[in-house]
Structures are given as structure tokens and as C-alpha cells.
């Protein structure tokens, strides 16, 4: 009897479907290793058993590496997110490279719903990698609203250079779980940037990497009780002030003046050269 139900039960060799009978979590373990949600989604046509297995995967990897029509790149992301039926994802990775991509390819209007999806449905890691065009000259600036991410631990986003990232209004718990944040390319307001990454919005932030341009030359003040590592390459920074008692490592460039706010002496101190 046990042999009939257990693992290793006899089955006609070579003609049996060994895979469709596996439980969903094992099929997920297998499909996740394709590291490509598009390939996983194609298994939906195999048979009825497979129709919705991929839609409940906990990690979504949406890449598009080869030169294809730009409209289909957006369609891949939109199609996959629309079909996703997992209540919560651990990981969402979207990468759209810039091979043959016309400027109109991916706009802030395309990206905003992806971020809102991540805000609602992802508790863990968000990677969003957009094309890195060399110059944004003459491009029309586009506002991109950053939603709140109360359950996200890691956010790494590379924007298009003409996107201006607008953080949500200061509110408790907006980034309550965030420990690692990277923002690359794109524009931000100096005051909004400082406020976004400080403890009031990001109470657990430990690693911060910024390679953005300020909309206008200004000061950036970061006040964090948790920050350990900072990479700050923000163009048009007049002065960077960091008040962060936990800080272990700091790399700064493109800031006219940078230093620490010493809360004891209430003075601004530049690091020794």
C-alpha cells in the first residue's frame, strides 16, 4: 500500500507525466529557477494543470534584453503584472534595456502603475531598471510619483534621466521596513530627497546609494539614526549635511561641500582629507 502512495512508486517507465502531479510549491521552485517570468508564463499553455501555476509565483522577473519593439517590452510587464494572482510577492524585478529603444518607449506614465503595483503587492525587494540614455537634452521632464512602500525591505531603481521622482508626502510608516535604497539617474528636489531618506520616513534604512541630479542647486540634509553606508553622488549639491551616529562608510562626490553635523557641539564638521 505504501509503495502505491509513497515516493518511488512504480510507474510505467518513459510514458508517465512525472511533473504535473508535483505540488504547486515544488512547481514554483522549478519555475523560479528559470529566472524569467515570461518563460514561466509560457507553461500556462501546457495543460489545464499548468494554466495558473505561474501566476502564483512569489517572485517575478521581467527582463527584456534583446532588441524588440518597444511596445512589446511594456506589454510584457503589463501582461505579467495583470495576470499575477499571488496576494504578496517577495520580489519584483523589472529590467528594460535601451537597445533600439526610442525615447517614447517607456514613459513615467507607464512606470507609475508598476510602482503602485509594487507598493500594493510586494513585500520584500523591488528592482526597477530603466534604459540609461546618455543624454536627456531636450527631453521633456516627466514627474514620477513614488508611492509608499510600508513592507518593502530593498528598493533599487534606475530611472530615465528626465524623470523627476516625487516622494510621497511625509507620513509615518511610509517606508517602515526599508533597509536598503538605491536611486540612480533621474532628478529630485534637494529638500524632498533629504526628507525621504531621513529617519522620519525611513526609520530602518542602513544602506543608501544615490546617483541623481538635483532639480536646482541646493543643500541636502540627511538625518538618520540607522544609516550605516552612504554612497552619495548627487549633482548640484551645494552642501551635504549628514547627521547619522551609526554611519560606518561614506563615499561622496559631486557635492561642493560635505560633512557631518555634530549634535554635541552643534557644528558642521568636514571629514579630514
Amino acid at each position: 500500500m505504501e509503495m502505491e502512495t509513497g515516493i518511488g512508486r512504480p510507474r510505467p517507465r518513459g510514458v508517465t507525466d512525472c511533473i504535473s502531479g508535483l505540488p504547486d510549491d515544488l512547481l514554483h521552485d522549478i519555475l523560479l529557477r528559470l529566472r524569467c517570468t515570461k518563460a514561466a508564463a509560457r507553461t500556462g499553455v501546457l495543460s489545464r494543470r499548468w494554466r495558473s501555476v505561474w501566476t502564483r509565483l512569489p517572485d517575478f522577473y521581467l527582463w527584456s534584453r534583446q532588441p524588440v519593439l518597444s511596445t512589446s517590452r511594456v506589454a510584457i510587464v503589463e501582461g505579467a503584472l495583470a495576470a499575477c494572482s499571488a496576494p504578496t510577492l517577495r520580489r519584483l524585478a523589472i529590467r528594460v534595456d535601451n537597445v533600439n529603444l526610442p525615447w517614447e518607449g517607456v514613459t513615467a506614465a507607464h512606470v507609475a502603475p508598476w510602482l503602485r503595483f509594487a507598493s500594493d503587492r510586494v513585500a520584500g525587494e523591488l528592482f526597477l531598471w530603466l534604459p540609461d540614455e546618455a543624454l536627456a537634452g531636450g527631453r521633456k521632464e516627466q514627474d514620477l510619483d513614488l508611492p509608499v512602500f510600508p513592507a518593502m525591505r530593498t528598493i533599487q531603481i534606475r530611472l530615465r534621466r528626465s524623470f523627476r521622482l516625487r516622494p510621497p508626502p511625509v507620513a509615518g510608516g511610509a517606508f517602515a521596513a526599508l533597509t536598503c535604497l538605491g536611486i540612480y539617474n533621474g532628478e529630485m528636489d534637494g529638500r524632498e530627497l533629504g526628507s525621504l531618506v531621513s529617519s522620519s520616513q525611513c526609520p530602518c534604512l542602513e544602506e543608501l546609494s544615490l546617483t541623481v541630479t538635483l532639480a536646482a542647486a541646493s543643500e541636502v540634509a540627511i538625518c538618520s539614526d540607522s544609516l550605516k553606508r552612504l554612497r552619495f553622488h548627487v549633482e548640484k549639491t551645494r552642501r551635504l549635511v549628514v547627521a547619522s551616529p551609526m554611519l560606518l562608510e561614506m563615499h561622496v562626490s559631486k557635492a561642493f561641500e560635505a560633512g557631518f553635523w555634530d549634535s554635541k557641539s552643534k557644528t558642521f564638521r568636514c571629514p579630514p582629507k
Partner: peptide, 16 residues
């Protein structure tokens, strides 16, 4: 059914 699901998943069959 197959036709229907192929249409639903058309995005997953774009070449790349």
C-alpha cells in the same frame, strides 16, 4: 481553450 489562453499570454510569446 488553447486559442483563448494563447491570446491571454501573447505577451509571453514575444520573441526575445
Amino acid at each position: 481553450e488553447l486559442e483563448e489562453i494563447r491570446q491571454e499570454l501573447a505577451w509571453a510569446f514575444y520573441d526575445d
